[in-house]
Amino acid sequence: MTVTDSAEPMIAVDGVEKVFDVRRKVAGTLRRERHQVRAVDGISFTVPRGEMVGYIGPNGAGKSTTIKMLTGILSPSGGRLRVAGIDPSRDRTRLARRIGVVFGQRTTLWWDLPLRDSYELVRRMYRIEDPRYARNLDACVELLDLGPLLDVPVRQLSLGQRMRGDIAAALLHDPEVLYLDEPTIGLDVISKAKVRDFLRTVNAERGTTVLLTTHDLTDIETLCSRVMVIDHGRLMYDGGLDGLHAVGESERTLVVDFAHELPPVEVPGARWVRSEGPRQWLAFPAGDSAAPLVTALAARHPLVDLSVREPAIEDVIARMYGAA
């Protein structure tokens, strides 16, 4: 019953709902009104073993609620969930041995103790045999550059160091599934790159199934071949990232600083959005390259500076919503 054969998906979510009862104060009175919030409203998907999936959506869309149901922290109001063949909310403690979880905004490390002590606790709690523990710790230390940090109290670590420490803590027991809830939030570019490299390695070498929520589209682009978009508790999209841009008709923005103030420029393949002194914003389809655009502009006017802004996931989804 609990044995997963390789044909069975690692994560199976079927018509899952989560309804919260919320009491809200009625303005101007002491009365409270009860009403229901459908945080997750009938979601179905499966993730095969070894896949790396991005799970995105605006704040309050239901991402974290889904992850909490998949870990067993929350029990669903309806529908059926299976992770590694286990019903999460019913067998939470047993499932805990087979999954690893990293909440970007919440650390599991011990604030006042050296990083190493937190790992020792994990070793004992999960009853990890010594050789396996040593092997996994060595691998994490090497890939995440944790060596010099092991004997530093966690409170002295930077956010990026702590996040790397947290990710290592979630992997010491060889989980089959790894949930990452905004693992790159607040990190600088270098830390983000390190985390992404590491996740790619873990996925490739250990075949760990990864479900990743993020607000950073680059996380998805560099890591996930598949992306799921959730909004208002419903699955809006499930497929490749290119498809998402096509569906969402999303645009990237080229921000150009000209040498002096100009009237709105017109270039083929781009649309003028706004001007602010010598700076202008031009939108172009996310699938297109910025290079011909820059060449065309530079040929006509002297440029001082330019940058390309990626479409925010919120915008992509907002467009999808409009298109649907």
């Binding site: 922290i73 047993r94 919440r106 599991t108």
Partner: peptide, 13 residues
């Protein structure tokens, strides 16, 4: 503050 989450993710009561 929701920090009970981290305790619920461990394989012990």
């Amino acid at each position: 503050d929701g920090t009970l989450d981290t305790l619920m993710l461990r394989p012990v009561p």
